[in-house]
Computed example of a mutant assay.
Amino acid sequence: MTNHTPRVFSGIKPSGGLTLGNYLGAIKRFVDMQAQDFETVYCVVDLHAITVWQDPKELTDATREVAAGFLAAGIDPSQSILFNQSQVPAHAELAWLFNCVARVGWMNRMTQFKDKAGKNAEQSSLGLYAYPSLMAADILLYHATHVPVGEDQKQHVELTRDIAAKFNHDFKAEGFFPQPEPIIEGPATRVMNLRDGTKKMSKSGESDMERINMTDDADKIAKKFKKAKTDPEPLPETLEGLKDRPEAKNLVDIYAGLSGLTNEQVITEYAGAGWGRFKPALADLAVEKLAPISEEMSRLMNDKAEIDRILGEGADKAEAIAQPILDRAYDITGFLRSRKR
């Protein structure tokens, strides 16, 4: 069995701007993992974005915005590899191999396709149907061992493990591709809508007041939290008391995610408190944590050449890991390769 270097891979899609959900559910965790005993590879997954129509100029701008969000939140290009997916063609190449390994029945079980395609599945792009195969390629191209994901992506990491196992088995290449572990942790891995605690915070929601954008300034952040929907009851004495109170639970989760406290610690501190006390405290905490990121994002977005340089250098580093793994996968598959590089 091959021993694989502990390596993290994860990515964010550039479509519609970053929210607090992206920060607490993903980017903050990426920054935390950067300081641990992993090689960390982080990607703006622009190939995934085009599974639904994207305006070309907006895609370019959104790619830079996601990169700026990574950098402003603390991803250090000297510690982590940061790049955009389309600059490393090996992602698409390995995805084709995996399209021929994965089974249609496996894809039909993917709940995210059903959620995103809805009643118009026949009108969806083939890419939207097959994108879990590309996601598997993203991960396995780096022999990643750990994948920080939200709960809604766990099924795709399980599919990645199935594809890795089938490739290794079919081509008698035991241990070539690792079995990556999904990492789902933290109090706010799923951040909900500020106006409806039963819905996930989304970039595409109807009202800007239902989400915190990573580009919001201090005044907007404070205003949105102070106006967030709550219920009439004060905060309970125990976590159990948040059951069937989705808006209250969401705000406690967000406070915990931003503060580094557990949900239990937040409830202990604010047990019995009314919203007139809790929401201003949450607003102050959010401004303290998020406004500096927003300011740095704004600065970076005004220096496109610097973002492009970082992504280009990151792509070179990513390719240096990815290309030998792809070459070996081609050899294992039996492709004739006689070009001199």
Rank of each mutant, 00 (worst) to 15 (best):
residue 106 W to I: 07
residue 74 G to H: 08
residue 158 E to M: 11
residue 8 V to K: 00
residue 143 H to Q: 15
residue 154 K to C: 09
residue 340 K to R: 13
residue 201 M to G: 02
residue 226 K to C: 08
residue 23 Y to V: 09
residue 300 L to K: 03
residue 296 E to Q: 15
residue 248 A to I: 01
residue 188 A to N: 12
residue 70 F to E: 08
residue 138 D to F: 06
residue 164 A to T: 04
residue 292 P to R: 01
residue 115 D to L: 10
residue 336 L to A: 12
residue 123 Q to A: 13
residue 237 E to P: 04
residue 296 E to G: 03
residue 10 S to C: 09
residue 340 K to I: 13
residue 124 S to T: 12
residue 29 R to V: 15
residue 280 P to A: 10
residue 307 I to H: 00
residue 15 S to P: 09
residue 278 F to E: 05
residue 310 I to D: 04
residue 318 A to V: 08
residue 318 A to P: 09
residue 45 V to W: 05
residue 153 Q to T: 15
residue 204 S to T: 12
residue 207 S to Y: 15
residue 17 G to N: 05
residue 109 R to W: 12
residue 127 G to Y: 01
residue 171 F to A: 00
residue 176 F to K: 04
residue 235 L to K: 01
residue 283 A to K: 03
residue 156 H to K: 09
residue 145 T to H: 00
residue 236 P to Q: 03
residue 47 L to N: 09
residue 47 L to Y: 13
residue 245 R to K: 15
residue 142 Y to G: 00
residue 38 F to R: 00
residue 195 R to A: 04
residue 87 Q to R: 15
residue 81 I to D: 00
residue 62 A to Y: 10
residue 327 D to G: 00
residue 219 D to L: 11
residue 41 V to N: 03
residue 112 Q to W: 14
residue 241 G to A: 01
residue 34 Q to E: 12
residue 271 A to G: 08
residue 303 D to I: 01
residue 87 Q to V: 04
residue 229 K to E: 10
residue 197 G to A: 02
residue 225 F to M: 07
residue 335 F to V: 13
residue 322 A to L: 07
residue 339 R to H: 15
residue 302 N to T: 11
residue 44 V to R: 05
residue 165 A to K: 01
residue 60 T to F: 15
residue 85 Q to D: 07
residue 265 Q to F: 06
residue 28 K to D: 07
residue 71 L to I: 14
residue 170 D to G: 01
residue 128 L to R: 10
residue 167 F to D: 05
residue 185 E to W: 03
residue 143 H to A: 11
residue 88 V to D: 00
residue 220 K to D: 15
residue 161 R to F: 08
residue 214 M to Q: 00
residue 92 A to C: 01
residue 319 E to W: 08
residue 75 I to Y: 03
residue 122 E to H: 11
residue 323 Q to S: 15
residue 340 K to H: 13
residue 84 N to R: 13
residue 87 Q to S: 14
residue 46 D to Y: 14
residue 279 K to G: 10
residue 128 L to W: 07
residue 174 E to N: 12
residue 302 N to K: 15
residue 318 A to D: 13
residue 262 T to W: 10
residue 240 E to V: 10
residue 267 I to H: 02
residue 280 P to R: 11
residue 97 L to C: 02
residue 317 K to H: 07
residue 68 A to V: 06
residue 58 E to S: 11
residue 67 A to I: 06
residue 63 T to E: 11
